[in-house]
Lab assay of single mutants.
Amino acid sequence: GKELVLALYDYQEKSPREVTMKKGDILTLLNSTNKDWWKVEVNDRQGFVPAAYVKKL
């Protein structure tokens, strides 16, 4: 099944490779191999968020 993460904080994208999320959002985790930036999918968009801003559910 898909792995989900919870947004712990708001995050505003700073580049086209990133995505914006709001605290409390549930996101689909696509890739967590990089310890600093995790790739997630939110609202049919894929991009990176800081790993410290999310936690695995």
Rank of each mutant, 00 (worst) to 15 (best):
V54F: 06
K39Y: 15
V54L: 15
K55W: 10
A7T: 04
L4N: 05
F48H: 05
P50W: 03
L4W: 15
Y53F: 13
Q46E: 11
L6C: 09
E3N: 11
F48K: 03
S32I: 07
D25T: 08
V19R: 02
E18L: 05
L27Q: 01
S15T: 12
N43G: 15
K23H: 06
R45W: 04
Q46G: 06
T33S: 14
V54E: 01
E13A: 15
F48N: 04
I26R: 05
Y53H: 06
V19H: 03
M21W: 02
D36T: 15
L57G: 04
M21Y: 02
L29P: 00
P50H: 02
P50L: 04
L29A: 02
D36S: 12
L30S: 03
E13M: 13
D10C: 06
L27H: 03
A7P: 00
D10M: 04
R17H: 13
Q12Y: 14
L30M: 08
R17S: 13
G1K: 14
P50G: 02
K14Q: 14
S15N: 12
S15H: 13
E18Y: 06
V5A: 12
V42N: 15
K23Q: 09
I26C: 06
G1Q: 13
V54M: 06
N31Q: 10
K56Q: 09
K55S: 10
R17A: 12
L27W: 03
L29Q: 00
L27G: 12
T28R: 12
Q12M: 13
T28Y: 12
T33K: 11
E18F: 07
P16V: 09
Y53K: 07
K35I: 10
A52N: 13
K2D: 08
A51F: 03
N31H: 07
A7F: 01
G24H: 05
V49R: 01
S32G: 11
K56N: 07
L6V: 15
P50F: 04
L30C: 07
L6H: 04
Q12V: 14
K14P: 04
A51L: 02
E13S: 15
D10A: 07
N31R: 07
L6Y: 11
E13K: 14
Y53C: 11
Y53S: 09
T28I: 15
G1I: 13
A52P: 08
N34F: 08
K55V: 15
I26W: 05
L30W: 06
E41M: 12
K35P: 14
K2M: 12
K35A: 13
K35F: 09
V5R: 02
N31P: 03
T33G: 10
A7R: 01
K2L: 13
A7V: 10
A52D: 09
K2N: 10
N31M: 09
M21A: 02
N31S: 13
T28P: 15
K14A: 12
D44S: 12
K39G: 06
F48P: 00
W37A: 02
K22Y: 12
K14C: 11
R17F: 14
L29V: 06
D36C: 14
T20R: 06
S32H: 09
G24C: 08
V49H: 00
A52S: 14
K39T: 08
G24M: 03
K39E: 14
M21P: 00
K22E: 06
N34Y: 09
Q12R: 12
Q46H: 08
A7Y: 01
L8F: 04
V5G: 13
Q46Y: 07
V5C: 13
R45E: 05
M21L: 09
L8E: 04
E41D: 07
K14W: 04
T20K: 04
A51C: 08
E13N: 07
N31T: 08
T28D: 05
A7L: 02
Q12C: 12
D10N: 08
G47C: 03
Y9R: 15
K14R: 13
A52E: 10
Y9Q: 13
Q12A: 13
W37L: 04
N43I: 11
Q46V: 15
Y53E: 02
L29G: 00
I26Q: 05
D25P: 01
D10V: 02
V5K: 00
Q46D: 07
R17Q: 13
M21R: 00
L6M: 15
W38H: 02
L57R: 04
E3I: 15
L57C: 13
E3V: 14
P16W: 10
Y11N: 01
G24P: 00
N34E: 11
V19D: 00
Y9S: 08
N43R: 14
D10H: 06
W38Y: 08
N34W: 07
G24F: 05
E41V: 10
E13R: 13
L29H: 01
F48W: 15
L4T: 08
D25F: 05
N34G: 09
K2C: 14
V40L: 04
K55M: 15
E13D: 05
G47S: 02
S32K: 07
V40G: 00
D25S: 08
G24S: 03
L57D: 03
K39F: 15
T20V: 03
R17I: 12
V54H: 01
Y9T: 07
L6D: 01
T20M: 04
S32W: 11
Y9I: 09
V49T: 01
P50S: 02
L57V: 11
F48G: 01
V19C: 09
V40N: 00
S32Q: 09
D10P: 06
Y11M: 01
L4E: 07
K23E: 07
A52T: 11
Y11W: 12
P50M: 03
V19A: 05
E41W: 08
E13L: 08
N34Q: 10
W37T: 02
K55N: 06
K22A: 08
K39V: 14
V49F: 01
P16E: 12
V40T: 00
A51E: 03
V42E: 04
V42A: 14
Y53T: 07
T33E: 14
Y11S: 00
G1M: 13
N43A: 12
V49K: 00
V19Q: 03
M21E: 00
E3P: 12
K39A: 08
L4M: 12
V42Q: 15
L57I: 14
K22T: 09
R17G: 14
W37M: 06
D44V: 06
